[in-house]
C-alpha cells in the first residue's frame, strides 16, 4: 500500500521534526491532510480525510473545516386560517455549505467565548451573513434553524475530543464528508490553543471536485444548455421507443 507508506514516512518526518531541538519553540504546530483532493465519481458515497500533525506537547488543538459559502433562504411556516404556510423568511447571503469543528477537549474547556468567536469555532460561531428578512423577524432564530437543519443532514457538526494525541505530541482526527457534500474548495484551519489563547494557526485547502462522467454531465448542462436539453429529450424518446418495442411482446 503505497499511500500508507507515504503517510507513514510523513508521520516519521513529523515525529523527527517534533523531537528536534528546533521544536523547542513554545508555539510549534505542523499539520497536513492525507489527501488534498476528493474526487466525486459516479459511485461517490461520501469520503473521509485524515488530518494529522504535531505540536510541542502543550496546549489543545482545534480543527475547523468550512465548505464553500452558499446563499440560503430559511422560511418559517405559520398557521394562518387553519393551514400551515411559509410566512416569515430570512435570506443569508452566505453560509458555509459544510462546517465541522473537532477539538482535543470540549471547546468551552479550551478557550473563552470571545476567543472561540474570533476563530469561528463552534456551531454558535458559524459565520453567516443576513442579506434580508421579512419584517419584524428575529434573525437569530432563523440562524439557529439553519444550523439545526444542516446538522440533521450531517453537513454541520462538532467533534469535541475527536482530535486525539499520540505520545503527547502527534495528533490526528478524521473528517467525514457525507454523500450530499457540495463540490468546491474546503478551508481547513488548525489552531493551537494554550491557556485560553490562540498560539499558532495553520491553514490547508482541500478540493472536492466532480470528475469523469459526473463532471462531463455537469459541464455540458451549464455550457451547452440548449444542446444538453435536446440530448436529454432524445434519450428520453429513445428510451420510450425501446420501451414500446418491449411492450409489443407483452
Amino acid at each position: 500500500m503505497t499511500p500508507r507508506r507515504i503517510l507513514l514516512g510523513f508521520l516519521l518526518c513529523v515525529l523527527a521534526a517534533a523531537l528536534s531541538p528546533a521544536a523547542a519553540r513554545a508555539d510549534y504546530l505542523v499539520a497536513d491532510l492525507s489527501k488534498r483532493r476528493i474526487d466525486i465519481t459516479l459511485g461517490f458515497a461520501g469520503a473521509e480525510v485524515l488530518l494529522f500533525g504535531a505540536t510541542d506537547g502543550q496546549g489543545d488543538v482545534v480543527v475547523i473545516v468550512r465548505g464553500p459559502n452558499q446563499p440560503v433562504i430559511v422560511r418559517h411556516k405559520e398557521r394562518i386560517a387553519g393551514i400551515w404556510i411559509n410566512w416569515h423568511w430570512a435570506e443569508f447571503s452566505r453560509a458555509p455549505a459544510f462546517y465541522y469543528v473537532a477539538s482535543s477537549k470540549p471547546l468551552d474547556e479550551i478557550a473563552g467565548e470571545s476567543v472561540l468567536a474570533g476563530i469561528g469555532a463552534g456551531l454558535t460561531n458559524v459565520r453567516t451573513t443576513v442579506a434580508s428578512a421579512s419584517q419584524d423577524v428575529d434573525t437569530t432564530a432563523f440562524r439557529q434553524a439553519l444550523v439545526g437543519a444542516k446538522e440533521s443532514e450531517s453537513l454541520y457538526g462538532t467533534g469535541p475530543g475527536d482530535v486525539t494525541f499520540l505520545a503527547g505530541r502527534l495528533f490526528r482526527t478524521t473528517v467525514s464528508f457525507p454523500a450530499n457534500v457540495a463540490p468546491g474548495p474546503y478551508d481547513i484551519e488548525i489552531y493551537l490553543v494554550r491557556d485560553g489563547h490562540v498560539e499558532r494557526g495553520e491553514r490547508r485547502t482541500l478540493f472536492i471536485t466532480k470528475v469523469g462522467l459526473s463532471a462531463a454531465v455537469y459541464e455540458r448542462a451549464h455550457e451547452n444548455a440548449a444542446l444538453y436539453g435536446l440530448v436529454a429529450v432524445a434519450i428520453a424518446l429513445m428510451a420510450g421507443w425501446l420501451g414500446a418495442i418491449g411492450l409489443r411482446k407483452v
Binding site: 446563499p71 440560503v72 430559511v74 435570506e91 439553519l146
Partner: peptide
C-alpha cells in the same frame, strides 16, 4: 397538520 419542523431551508 403541524409540520415536524416549522423551518425549511432552500439553498439558492
Amino acid at each position: 397538520t403541524r409540520p415536524a419542523t416549522p423551518y425549511t431551508l432552500q439553498v439558492v
